[in-house]
Design a protein around this nucleic acid. Structure first.
Length: 877
RNA sequence: GGGCGAGUAGCUCAGUUGGUUAGAGCGCUACGUUCACAUCGUAGAAGUCACAGGUUCGAGUCCUGUCUCGCCCACCA
């Protein structure tokens, strides 16, 4: 059967065709085999609101490579996919949609609003999941999960109740990060600090009963003074001993404040006196507790001043700040303002400046969890790749603070706590919805209105997706998972907490290896983001060059764990490579006598009788298999790409295919091609499958159903032939020399040249036909005492001549030789000095010394030949 | 304030325990389309390995310090 490939590779139909076939055929579901250790990855669940961006493309390509590689190694392989309900983000999206109809969520009941969100989820939530398929991600879609599906919601309740029962969840009044735009509390991780150029205001507070006397406090947030309930000084600060027992009058409000003494106050900062606002600053909160101060909250949830703010009530916090400064100035109480660089928390969802806010929230006690999780990493139950992240992780664990898990939004897992109508009854914390109060029997119960932090469901992901808390076969078989692949941004949010949850609920860390990859950036180093308009859309890239090219390009340019700087041109590397592979295969298919290849497995017997070129390419293949494995084992995907790129393009196409006009074994040809496709498959799944299937038809060989289940190549020492490799090196050297000579002398590419070689080496005499072919030589003669020809150069002791009666540009040749002589003389000078150094002779290993010596000999010989040639050219001209 | 990463060819980056004359891809220059592939081939030019010291027979690689860029963490108001 004659099978032809199209002239250029057209990924579009091929990709859709194969993905559908793979999924339908169930290749992505693991073949459970108790005797074999499974390889398992859980996907970092993208937000349901998400659309595939380059970061996802990178992240999921890495996972897919690992998964496909292990699958081909015939391990039971599972990649669990799914999406995250992304509480705040999703609610924001739906609220924005409602805003277009001039509505807010408060125009709906909670139930109505939630049904709007579910509706949105059903319509748009599968976008990213479809896009992952286009990338080629070989997830087991039969096991797809969602953080709010029934099973995972059950897991969330189970976790909450267990922690509550162990006294590791508590409710209390604390200062938390409050987003005035999202109207909710946030965890510390959700309120990253950003440096802002602000103002430090120095304000006079009058001392009571001492007209004209005042103290000066410094603050960056003057509006919080409305909630001041004390001023504080350091007890050791002698400047202020005199005022310890005085009362201070709070301007604008006329509240009477005591002076408290607290070690926290740094006498060297500002004036050395701190205004204390226990309800709006974490430090002041601590002081407030220590000194039993009053907590006055002056803010509404939306960031406006509340009724406690007197004249400023109703004003936005920033407007109030401006107004208060103006008013103080008018009263002569503003001493000065100086610009001041400080770090301010921002909401990670909407980037609004967060407000430290005193309110009642639910918290998880982190110390015991952190200790366990840190231990798991210290004992190498979990390993970070690259290793430098270990320190980052441990440092965070050491400085952990309790986790605020309640959110004042509607979309999410509602907190499983109910309050009885009878205020004297204790809250009911329950896995199931209770119908009546166990204490008083009342049926009037009200569930806590808050929902849990989205990450409270994500941290259970590695086992909740496998069925926990039920004891399912999947859980037993696939937990703990093998690798986790993610970006550094979510080490604290997610990775660290998953390790905690795994240790706490499963008694074992959830994965062995955490592979942290870099961030995708633009050419100029910016983060890619929609708002900056600097996105390169992976789906565009797939449309233009195909998923394989996208994947390969990404992997090729991303050093292990390093950030990747992208521009559209970067994807040409993958496009060109897919094209090269395609055309090489096209060539093979066009030239093979298809009838004779029903079997191209190589037996030891066959291999022994192969020609040296075949032996050489087999040697390179086996070396490449080893290198690829080493690269994949150490998560060096760019090395794996580089190895296979070089092998396929340069060894296979440039040399082997070029030499294929000589007598080569077509069996070896197909063998190498087929093995190459397997090696490339994890990187470029679509194209390799397409070609492999064609190969199957041509060879009529039963290779199996799909390349994605074909066995991963194993290297074989008996297929490495040092002599053949040496011979190839020699051939390449002679060919380079003569090609260079041709180019240097502008010899018409179509014109044959006459070559003579003077050498004692028998090996080179076996290369005449190859040399003829590759340098377009009319003849290659082996003889000594060549007279009247031009000496071109010396290769491993063999002197190479070309018939000088042809059109050689003598002047150019002279110049080339002169350059060579100069270079060689410089090199020899350095070598001579090195070898003359007694210390080098004494201390360097013998191999190194001998190596240098041999180099000296060879260079000397070359130099002499060039000098001879110079003389000969003199007589010629 | 603490920590991490990066600085190697015009650009993007490799360079694994120190040991050839420091590599690749892109770009550039010249030539080439009867060749599977011009998304190609052949050949070529191009580097003070950020800087300064040090260790060593030998440093891009190890040590110390400095500079530049980027990132993360941090309750000095």
């Amino acid at each position: 059967m004659k099978i032809e490939l199209d002239k250029t590779y057209n990924p579009r139909e091929i990709e859709t065709k194969w993905y559908e076939h793979w999924e339908k055929s169930g290749y992505f579901s693991p073949k459970v085999n108790a005797a074999k250790k499974p390889f398992v990855i859980v996907i970092p669940p993208p937000n349901v609101t998400g659309i595939l961006h380059m970061g996802h493309a990178l992240n999921n390509t890495i996972q897919d490579i690992l998964i496909r590689w292990h699958r081909m190694r015939q391990e039971p392989t599972l990649w669990v996919p799914g999406t995250d309900h992304a509480g705040i983000a999703t609610q924001n999206v739906v609220e924005k949609k409602l805003a277009k109809q001039n509505k807010t969520r408060h125009d709906f009941s909670r139930e109505e609003f939630l049904s709007e969100v579910w509706k949105w989820k059903e319509e748009h939530g599968s976008t990213i999941v479809r896009q992952l398929r286009r990338l080629g991600a070989s997830c087991d879609w039969t096991r797809e999960r969602f953080t709010m599906d029934e099973g995972l919601s059950k897991a969330v309740r189970e976790a909450f109740v267990r922690l509550y029962e162990k006294d590791m969840i508590y409710q209390g009044y604390r200062i938390i990060n409050w987003c005035p735009r999202c109207h909710t509390a946030l965890s510390d991780e959700e309120a990253p600090h950003k440096e802002l150029e602000g103002m430090l205001y120095y304000i006079k507070y009058p001392v009571k009963g001492k007209t004209g006397e005042h103290i000066t406090v410094a603050t960056t947030r003057p509006e919080t003074m409305l909630g001041d309930t004390a001023v504080a000084v350091n007890p050791k600060d002698e400047r202020y001993h005199a005022i310890h027992h005085h009362k201070i009058i709070l301007p604008l409000v006329d509240r009477e404040l005591s002076v408290i003494q607290d070690e926290f106050v740094d006498p060297d900062f500002g004036s050395g006196i701190v205004k204390v606002t226990p309800a709006h600053d974490p430090n002041d909160f601590e002081m407030g507790q220590r000194h039993k101060l009053e907590f006055i909250n002056v803010l509404n949830p939306d960031g406006t001043i509340n009724e406690k703010g007197g004249a400023y009530a109703g004003m936005d916090r920033f407007k109030a700040r401006k107004q208060i400064v103006e008013d103080l100035e008018a009263q002569g109480l503003l001493v000065k303002k100086v610009s001041h660089l400080h770090a301010v928390g921002h909401c990670y969802r909407c980037h609004t400046v967060i407000e430290p806010y005193y309110s009642k929230q639910w918290f998880v006690k982190m110390r015991p969890l952190a200790d366990m999780a840190a231990k798991a990493v210290r004992e190498q139950k979990v390993n970070f790749v690259p290793d430098r992240w270990t320190k980052v992780y441990l440092n965070w664990m050491d400085n952990i603070r309790d986790w605020c898990i309640s959110r004042q939004i509607w979309w999410g897992h509602q907190i499983p706590v109910w309050y009885c109508d009878n205020k004297n009854c204790k809250p009911i914390v329950s896995r199931e919805n209770p119908t009546k109060c166990p204490a008083c029997g009342s049926a009037k119960l009200k569930q806590d209105e808050d929902v849990l932090d989205t990450w409270f469901s994500s941290w259970l992901w590695p086992f909740s997706t496998l069925g926990w808390p039920e004891k399912t076969p999947d859980l037993k078989c696939f937990y703990p998972t093998s690798d986790l692949v993610t970006a550094s941004e979510i080490i604290f949010f997610w990775v660290a907490r998953m390790i905690m949850a795994g240790c706490e609920f499963m008694g074992a860390a959830p994965f062995n290896t955490v592979n942290i990859h870099g961030t995708i950036r633009t050419e100029t180093g910016q983060k890619m983001s929609k708002s900056l308009g600097n996105i390169i859309d992976p789906l565009d890239v797939i449309d233009h060059v195909g998923a394989d090219a996208l994947r390969f390009s990404l992997m090729m340019i991303t050093g292990a764990g390093q950030d990747a700087f992208l521009s559209p041109e970067k994807f040409e590397i993958g496009r060109n490579f897919t094209n090269k592979i395609w055309n090489a295969c096209r060539f093979v298919f066009m030239n093979m006598k298809t009838e004779s290849f029903d079997n191209f497995e190589l037996t030891a017997e066959k291999i022994k009788n192969l020609g040296w070129v075949d032996q050489w390419i087999l040697s390179e293949l086996n070396r490449s298999i080893d290198e690829t494995n080493r690269a994949l084992e150490t998560y060096r995907f760019n090395d794996a790409c580089g190895t296979l790129y070089h092998f396929f393009w340069h060894d296979f196409c440039d040399w082997y295919v070029e030499l294929s006009k000589q007598k080569l074994s077509e069996k070896v040809f197909l063998h190498v091609l087929e093995k190459s496709l397997r090696l490339l498959h994890p990187l470029m799944p679509f194209q390799t499958e397409e070609i492999w299937q064609k190969l199957k038809l041509i060879t009529k060989k039963d290779l199996g159903e799909t390349i994605s289940l074909a066995e991963w190549p194993v290297s074989n020492k008996s297929q490495v032939f040092d002599a053949a490799v040496k011979k190839a090196e020699l051939l390449k050297d002679v060919v380079f020399l003569l090609r260079n000579f041709r180019a240097e002398n502008d010899i018409d590419p179509k014109k044959g040249i006459h070559v003579a070689i003077d050498s004692q080496d028998a090996l080179i005499k076996e290369l005449s036909s190859e040399i003829k072919l590759l340098v377009r030589a009319e003849e290659v003669a082996f003889k000594s005492g060549v007279k009247g020809w031009l000496k071109v150069g010396v290769v491993k002791g063999a002197v190479v001549y070309v018939d000088a009666s042809k059109d050689i540009d003598i002047a150019k040749r002279k110049k080339a030789i002169e350059d060579n002589v100069k270079k060689l003389e410089g090199y020899l000078k350095a070598l001579d000095a090195k070898l003359a150094n007694d210390d080098f002779k004494k201390r360097a290993p013998k191999e190194v010394y001998d190596g240098e010596l041999a180099k000296q000999q060879e260079s000397l010989q070359k130099l002499n030949h060039f000098k001879d040639e110079q003389k000969a050219l003199e007589t010629l001209s």
